[in-house]
């Protein structure tokens, strides 16, 4: 959980109006706008996105989680190589991991071949990449905190003690 309530509200719903954010945080609209601008400028806020149920939206894209093992470098560890991998457009997320491999790379492509090509031609050919293991995603149950399966609406009675 982040400490600034403004960020915790926005992380759940980025479309809340400035007026509502102001009401929720007891700040003025101007103060809220300035805070958000500040967070965007210093990179605390990386961006705003819409979380889409890809299946419902009719997307045929494929995604894969790739386990990558790397040779660490003197001085920089894994950072230089990780940044280099993260820069590819196909990479949606890229994390340094503990355990049996070093990087988890989430990759998206138009079809299986595109993803396979990215792995064989871009990723595994990099100096320092020791091995890759590719796992294709079959179905999504939850994305960025949102369940694909929605719960029933409010079951409360309109007036209760």
């Amino acid at each position: 959980m982040v400490s600034d309530p403004l960020l915790s509200i926005l992380s759940r719903n980025a479309r809340v109006s400035l007026e509502s954010l102001a009401d929720q945080t007891s700040l003025s609209v101007e103060e809220v706008a300035a805070k958000i601008a500040g967070y965007e400028k210093d990179g605390t806020i990386l961006g705003f996105q819409t979380v889409v149920d890809e299946e419902k939206a009719g997307s045929v894209d494929v995604s894969a989680l790739i386990e990558v093992r790397l040779t660490p470098e003197r001085g920089g560890g894994f950072d230089r190589l990780a940044h280099r991998i993260a820069k590819f457009d196909q990479v949606v997320s890229c994390w340094l991991m503990s355990g049996g491999y070093d990087l988890a790379v989430l990759v998206q492509g138009a079809d299986l071949r595109q993803v396979a090509q990215f792995v064989s031609q871009k990723l595994s050919t990099l100096d320092g990449v020791l091995s890759t293991a590719t796992h294709f995603k079959l179905k999504s149950y939850k994305e960025a905190g949102f369940e694909a399966h929605q719960e029933t609406g409010d079951t409360r009675l309109p007036v209760t003690p």
Binding site: L157, P158, V159
Partner: peptide, 16 residues
């Protein structure tokens, strides 16, 4: 409750 029940578009601040 009986007044409110069945009305459409009510915003309820009456729920405990």
């Amino acid at each position: 409750f009986e007044l409110v029940q069945g009305r459409e578009g009510v915003i309820s601040l009456g729920v405990g």
